[in-house]
Design a protein around this nucleic acid. Structure first.
Length: 525
RNA sequence: GCAUCCGUAGCUCAGUAGGUAGAGCACUCGGCUUUUAACCGAUUGGUCCUGCGUUCGAGUCGCAGCGGAUGCACCA
């Protein structure tokens, strides 16, 4: 890795070409080759994984030697007492190697000097437990499975440089077990959701990532270019509009767990690409959907945390059902005493917001102001899982009007530790109403609001063919995994989070000239 | 996008008032050991993030930039 000025490693622990530690390993690699040893062989027949041995010999007492011969393999992570003790790791955990000179042939003793931490080896040996109580393999033979050229992070100080951890996540995974644990739990969450939905006859259907217009959410999209068609395309910001087309198409239960791209700020809670579950189910409304959501998330919590109680930072969150359901207007009243229902006008609402110290920006309607008041006054206090229900129609262009309350829609958002976790509603199925709402959005977009939705005429056309009553929800998988794994940053639950690249500047005037190919590509046509 | 903080050896860090660039660990070499970051000895290792400036002299002071962290904004 080279920094912006072309010389040294900018992130800790990584050896650039010419680095001393790497050069030393290259020397050992050459020496191994000269001894006729293949440093990158093809396979190893193992009899046990580390965890198998730990379990199988749980009862073996200290200082007891067995004659049981095993073959294990893995990565050398640590060494003590001049390589008499070696910690060998495989995916399941650790097994200590006991490498005494009297158990090893002279040749293998000599070649030991060519091994480093980070190398993969396979060993043959017998099982024993040491005086210190550590289950070990007394090594009688070993073979190299991979020579590593990079130094492993210092085992005493650890691999703590945050930037290095995210830029070189493979090292982070090797050294910090919690990283693997979190990613494993993420996999469990996704598997649990799939099983939950599949068991209820849902179909997982993939919808387009490249779209002519990016709709279905308020967000700025990424733009890309298709060369042959010579058109700009957008990366999707939601899967909603296509999944609803599937409902129109006659599927009654569909979902997608897919990558979403939003061209917005990066923070501990936002990555430019993230994973969202969107699920749509015909003939149900938002009340049914809240029950459904509770059940599904409880199942995830149980699968990952073993129960409904989860520690998150300083909070203990209990997902036990049922969760509170609070009308947005009541949530505002509870938080700051304001009764928005007594204020019928946009101007009046604006005044009330200002009086409360709520900063308004681009709000143009009464409903938008109510939503902003909620976000700045009430949201943060929603620690335990809470459904906020009945949103203003102006902030919900895809949601069916409330059956009783004019000006409101049948929508909920799920909050937890003051953060939004899910967004669901009775889907708007009236094509004429939908057209009007999207035309309003398009007007805003034309007026310069980059997050407003485009007018998707094909979506409206689809709805004119007829869409049954439908409930639909989107759940941010990354956020959910954050809660269930007590992760402070979204980066901790993503295998390879987005990082700003380290750019190598031109070293000479000649290099500084634009690359011809790049130039050609940048000219459209 | 805004604010605050951070950047010295592979790692963790020290660096006094602006005056020769330091320690421990790691690496390498040698010794020793059947029991746990072993230990003992020796060597090696630096563009102090980059650039410009102030100064006789800058790791240290100033300005600009790069990268990161956190918070805010946006949003899920």
């Amino acid at each position: 890795m080279v920094n912006s000025h072309g010389r040294r490693s900018i992130v800790s622990g990584i050896e650039i070409e010419g680095g001393r530690l790497r050069t030393e390993r290259l020397r050992k690699l050459e020496e191994l080759k000269s001894l006729g040893i293949k440093p990158y062989p093809y396979r190893f027949e193992r009899t046990h994984k580390a965890q198998d041995l730990q379990e199988q010999y749980k009862e073996l007492e200290k200082e007891v030697e067995t004659q049981d011969v095993v073959r294990v393999c893995g990565k050398i992570m640590n060494e003590r007492n001049s390589w008499m003790f070696v910690d060998l790791y495989d995916e399941t955990g650790k097994i200590q190697l006991f490498c005494h000179k009297e158990s090893l042939p002279q040749e293998k003793l000599d070649q030991r000097k060519l091994l480093d931490k980070g190398d993969y080896i396979g060993v043959t040996g017998t099982i024993r437990r040491t005086k210190a109580g550590e289950l070990s393999v007394r090594v009688t033979d070993w073979e190299l499975l991979c020579k590593s050229l990079q130094p492993m992070p210092d085992s005493w100080d650890g691999f703590n440089d945050v930037e290095a951890r995210y830029r070189h996540r493979y090292v982070d995974m090797l050294v910090n077990p919690s990283v693997r644990d979190t990613l494993r739990k993420r996999s469990v969450v996704i598997r649990t959701i799939r099983k939950f939905l599949d068991d209820r006859d849902f179909l997982e259907i993939e919808t387009p990532t490249l779209q002519v217009e990016a709709g279905g959410a308020d967000a700025r999209p990424f733009v890309t270019h298709h060369n042959t068609l010579d058109i700009d395309l957008f990366l999707r910001i939601a899967t909603e509009l296509h999944l609803k087309r599937l409902i129109v198409g006659g599927f009654e239960r569909v979902y997608e767990i897919g990558r979403i791209f939003r061209n917005e700020g990066i923070s501990t809670r936002h990555n430019p690409e993230f994973t969202m579950l969107e699920m749509y189910c015909a003939y149900g409304d938002y009340n049914d959907l809240m029950d459904f959501t509770e059940e599904m998330i409880c199942e995830c919590a149980t699968a990952v945390a073993g129960g409904t109680k989860v520690k998150y930072g300083e909070h203990e969150i209990d997902f036990a059902r049922p969760w509170k359901r609070v009308r947005m207007n009541d949530a505002i009243k509870n938080a700051c005493g304001l009764d928005v229902e007594s204020i019928p006008t946009f101007e009046g609402m604006k005044e009330a917001a200002t009086k409360l110290g709520v900063h308004l920006d681009k709000e143009e309607t009464r409903g938008e102001v109510i939503n902003t008041i909620f976000e700045s006054k009430a949201e943060a206090s929603l620690i335990q899982p809470t459904f906020i229900i009945d949103y203003p129609v102006e902030v919900s262009p895809l949601t069916k009007a409330h059956r009783n309350n004019p000006g409101e829609v049948e929508r909920f958002e799920l909050f937890c530790t003051g953060r939004e976790l899910a967004n669901g509603y009775s889907e708007l199925t009236d094509p004429l109403d939908q057209r009007q709402r999207l035309e309003n959005q398009a007007r805003k977009k034309a007026a310069g609001n980059e997050e407003a939705m485009p007018l998707d005429l094909d979506f409206i056309l689809a709805m004119e063919y007829g869409m049954p009553p439908t409930m639909g929800i989107g759940i941010g998988i990354d956020r959910l995994v954050m809660f269930l794994t007590d992760s402070a940053s979204i980066r901790d639950v993503i295998a390879f989070p987005t990082m700003k690249p380290i750019v190598e500047p031109p070293k000479t005037a000649k290099d500084a000239q634009p690359d011809k190919d790049a130039e050609a590509v940048s000219r459209k046509g």
